[in-house]
Nucleic acid binder design. Structure first.
Lengths: 180, 180
DNA sequence: GATAATGGCCGAATGATGTTAGGTATCAAT
DNA sequence: ATTGATACCTAACATCATTCGGCCATTATC
């Protein structure tokens, strides 16, 4: 399993991803432990050919890395919440970005809309969430936060390689003049 | 790499996760392609011992699966957005849940707060987002949606095994009576 | 239109790694 | 003290990743 070729994170993918690459990606996103022989069989390639493709996808940065997906509840993170942070001025202050160092913080985005920053956090309970929120409030320029505590998660998965080619026409849309 | 032991998704983890398991999880979340020899070296175990631990973590469901993490932009998903969906009645209608079949939809949660459902979606552009929103609106009972389009992502990672033992006291908090 | 060059693939051989087996130490309960 | 269970180790084996050489298709060049 030693990747002798250096996987240096080169600049973003220059070449195009074809249908074969997409099938390989789909398989690896679902299960990254398949042998190259099985992977090749699934997509219609030999093991070395599949390996060569995967190596290229890694080198080009399309495959960032292989990761173990763990069950949050098992590691003491039963509470998931999305935190919207309203900030004065420009929200990306170093003090606010420092919360990314906590392992409870999984995502930090700046968003367009009525709020500046959006965090996805996972804590053991509401008490720990309060402790994290206190850290967020502690950052200068933070005006307010709104937390959306997740009650149930129906779907949660990493980025998928598939894309929807054409979106269905809405069937129950309001009549619009000149809707082509 | 063939896991001869069946990894049947048994009921949730019965036994406790110790510090060694946490270190193994931390290593595998970062890079699931390490050899068991390297993994053992990193956490202070032999290769078979590390393997045994990993096998147990998989069987107990702590490790759900190994997945390839791909760069969304490389597969034509440069636009990330969080969509809040307000619904009349109980939001979990089959028609709304059907949007989970689109590969653009990565997360579906029901949340507490002023909205009922929260989706994380990744599309190629705003036009595709519009097509997806049309599908959401098409579900009966959907009153309104609010979309937060991500401008920049500063952090995005899968669930981490680490937990913060004690949260720092906020340094700039308002004086509170009898704050112990 | 012939030919060289490139890219992608395959089959087979080799080396690294996953995996099993057997044995030892530690700890808890009998 | 003895038994049983658990977790670990070393060593051997089986499997797989990886490399190599050659083949075929396509494209560029003469």
């Amino acid at each position: 399993m030693k990747e002798t070729d250096d996987i240096r994170p080169t600049t973003s993918a220059p070449q195009q991803i074809d249908a074969m690459d997409r099938r390989i990606l789909a398989a690896l996103v679902e299960d990254a432990t398949v042998s190259y022989a099985d992977l090749g069989k699934r997509v219609g390639l030999s093991a070395p050919a599949a390996h060569e493709r995967v190596k290229r996808l890694k080198r080009s940065g399309v495959i960032q890395r292989m990761a173990a997906l763990i069950e949050p509840k098992a590691v003491g993170k039963g509470l998931l919440a999305f935190v919207h942070v309203d900030t004065r001025g420009w929200g990306k202050s170093p003090a606010l970005m420092a919360v990314a160092n906590y392992p409870e913080v999984e995502e930090v985005h700046s968003v367009a809309g009525d709020t500046c920053m959006l965090l996805k956090v996972r804590t053991e309970n509401t008490h720990a969430l309060e402790g994290l929120l206190a850290q967020i409030y502690d950052a200068p320029g933070v005006l307010a936060t709104r937390s959306y505590v997740v009650l149930s998660t129906y779907l949660e998965r990493p980025p998928q390689p598939g894309i929807t080619a054409s979106w269905p026409r809405p069937k129950a849309s309001l009549p619009v003049a000149a809707a082509q």
